[in-house]
């Protein structure tokens, strides 16, 4: 009897050793010596914008993002203006995904009758697996054209096309830390061809901070803040801070938010006259984004 037990246990050990030999977990697939493909991070944000600033997310190639942006008036104006809802300023925009790493877009804002256009390129794509890249790196360059009859507003200075223009360049360093949390940093340079007076810098250097915290699959808290470094001494406008929620309904992404920023392109929301959060000079606003597939993909 004892001998049988001994033999049996010996055989069991042997079989265990044999199964270990057959692949780490006895799995057939482990025989394939799998070369893990590159796992690229996707869905860091619901859309290519955090609220005002460009996000680390890109549009897929062949898609068009139709964006309708609304900003109402100052909440601090009280009941007579229905807390700002009586006024509205808007921007209509069309963004296009060209390749997985390249997109471009243009838009038109009612504020200053400004038209803007940009190109956005992803230099590094956060990924793991075959290559480990801890963050995404994105370049954005844009241009704005002021469409007012008199964009300069200084007596004796003629309106030329060049004086209508402004530019911005930014680098976005972003990382999706988890399904819930994404953070990004974006050093930005805004250049205005003409400014109000000699004390106002033509070049404004700024750093944007943006992020997202996802509550559920379709609901997230988003925020962005841009700190302009050389506002002093002449451009003492407030830095833009926006706080909102992303709601995804299937086809649309709604962003509802409060912000002290007036403008809806980089030049405008960084350099224009923003309100003071502490005095309640904030505005309710929403961004509506609808993505259309304009080039059908072969599957």
């Amino acid at each position: 009897m004892k001998r049988i037990i001994r033999i049996a246990s010996f055989l069991l050990i042997l079989s265990a050793a044999a199964s270990a030999q057959n692949g780490q977990d006895g799995s057939l697939l482990s025989l394939l010596d799998e070369q893990f493909s590159l796992d690229r991070t996707t869905n860091a944000f619901k859309s290519p914008r955090v609220i005002n600033t460009h996000s680390m997310e890109m549009l897929a190639p062949g898609t068009m993002d139709f964006r309708i942006l609304h900003r109402f008036g100052d909440v601090s104006r009280g009941g007579y203006e229905l807390f700002g809802l009586d006024q509205a300023s808007m921007r209509l925009g069309f963004d296009f995904g060209i390749t997985p790493n390249l997109m471009a877009g243009f838009g038109r804002s009612t504020s200053k009758k400004e038209t803007d256009a940009f190109v956005k390129y992803r230099i590094l794509w956060q990924s793991k697996g075959r290559r480990n890249i801890p963050f995404s790196l994105i370049w954005v360059s844009g241009m704005t054209i002021n469409g007012l009859h008199d964009p300069v507003g200084i007596e004796g200075v003629a309106t030329t096309f060049g004086r209508r223009l402004g530019y911005y360049h930014e680098v976005i360093i972003g990382r999706k830390f988890s399904e819930r949390l994404t953070l990004q940093l974006s050093p930005t340079l805004v250049h205005n061809n003409i400014v109000a007076n000699i004390l106002v810098p033509n070049d404004l250097f700024a750093v944007g901070f943006g992020g997202r915290f996802k509550f559920t699959k379709r609901l997230a808290l988003v925020w962005d803040y841009t700190y302009a470094i050389n506002r002093f001494p002449a451009n003492l406008n407030y830095n833009p801070l926006s706080l909102g929620v992303d709601i995804e309904t299937g086809g649309h992404v709604f962003q509802l938010h409060f912000s002290n920023a007036v403008g809806m392109n980089e030049r405008a929301y960084i350099t224009d006259e923003n309100g003071n959060w502490l005095k309640g000079q904030i505005r309710f606003g929403f961004n509506l984004s609808r993505v259309f597939q304009i080039v059908k993909r072969k599957i």
């Binding site: 996707t42 379709r218 086809g251 993505v291 993909r297 599957i299």
Partner: peptide
Amino acid sequence: LFEKALMQEHFNEN
């Protein structure tokens, strides 16, 4: 891979 990029995004995320 889906015909529509948005569908693929939702398939993965939601």
